[in-house]
Design a protein around this nucleic acid. Structure first.
Length: 273
DNA sequence: TAAATCCTGTCA
DNA sequence: TGACAGGATTTA
């Protein structure tokens, strides 16, 4: 599922289309995909707008329009934004089509229909930003900032806390499991119980798994594709996800599976404490 | 805090 | 054929 590295990879790919990315037309084929405003209003306010910049906040892709508004896309589980020629057939999983000035199209394809589009005024963008936790790849996100996140909910388990976008933005099920393994921390370990060196290790682990994920253009266990329809390759480097029962690459013990924070969770019961 | 909800492809 | 997966939101 698209987490921070998958959205960041998409952001960087779309930046290559600037400065001539003009959304000359918008077609919404599955109206519930537009969270706000109404689908008609969304089209009216996006059509004809030039994209000045492509940003990201957590797992949200942000298209900053020349109107001052921002079109936000959350890909949720199975959403992809594909750059295609208009002659390519539109399959029934395509829920929104953005026609570009050069004739090509950006198509939002999402078999699960969980993803959402929204158009945000500057004020709404500020409000959304305030609801999300810090960016783990921001240069200012260091061990001190990690400690603050943990201190904000000392009684919660680490995995539940790290998945909470209001506490820390951008992590999902895959990268949380990978980061906790790398830090040697158990997913149920209470956030308030970490020693200073463990806090620092967790911050470094989160940063490194996200950076490696981006370097490999994301994890494509199943669905993630870039705008040209190509998968990422970080699935080939995962240490725990998808390896239940196989030996831990640190200590050799068989990796275990449990449901933590309502998510399938893989960890090493021997060396994650 | 936990459960239900939204969805449909995939797998047993 | 039915259980399962899961991010975010809503409801109990």
């Amino acid at each position: 599922m698209p987490e921070l590295p998958e959205v960041e990879s998409l952001r960087r790919d779309l930046l290559q289309l600037l400065p001539d990315l003009v959304l000359v037309g918008v077609e919404i084929r599955y109206p519930p995909i537009v969270a706000r405003p109404s689908p008609e209003e969304f089209c009216r306010r996006v059509e004809g707008r030039r994209v000045l910049d492509v940003g990201r906040r957590g797992k949200l892709l942000l298209l900053r329009l020349d109107s001052g508004e921002t079109a936000a896309l959350h890909r949720r589980m199975t959403g992809n934004l594909l750059l295609t020629q208009p002659t390519e057939p539109v399959d029934h999983h395509v829920h929104a089509v953005f026609r570009l000035a050069d004739g090509r199209q950006l198509r939002y394809r999402d078999p699960r229909k969980f993803g959402r589009l929204a158009l945000l005024t500057p004020g709404e963008m500020v409000a959304l930003d305030a609801e999300l936790g810090p960016e783990p790849l921001d240069p200012t996100f260091d061990a001190v900032a990690m400690a603050e996140v943990l201190r904000s909910a000392p009684g919660r388990g680490l995995k539940a806390l790290l998945l909470d976008q209001r506490r820390l933005a951008g992590l999902g099920n895959i990268y949380v499991d990978e980061a906790l393994w790398r830090a040697g921390l158990h997913p149920l370990r209470l956030a308030g119980s970490l020693a200073p060196d463990e806090v620092a290790a967790l911050q470094r682990a989160i940063r490194s798994v996200l950076e490696e994920g981006i370097a490999h253009r994301g994890t494509s266990l199943r669905d993630h594709l870039d705008p040209d329809g190509r998968p990422g390759s970080y699935q080939d480097y995962l240490q725990v996800v998808g390896r239940v029962g196989q030996p831990c690459r640190r200590c050799g013990a068989p990796l275990a599976r449990a449901v933590v924070a309502s998510r399938g969770t893989v960890y090493c019961p021997a060396c994650q404490r």
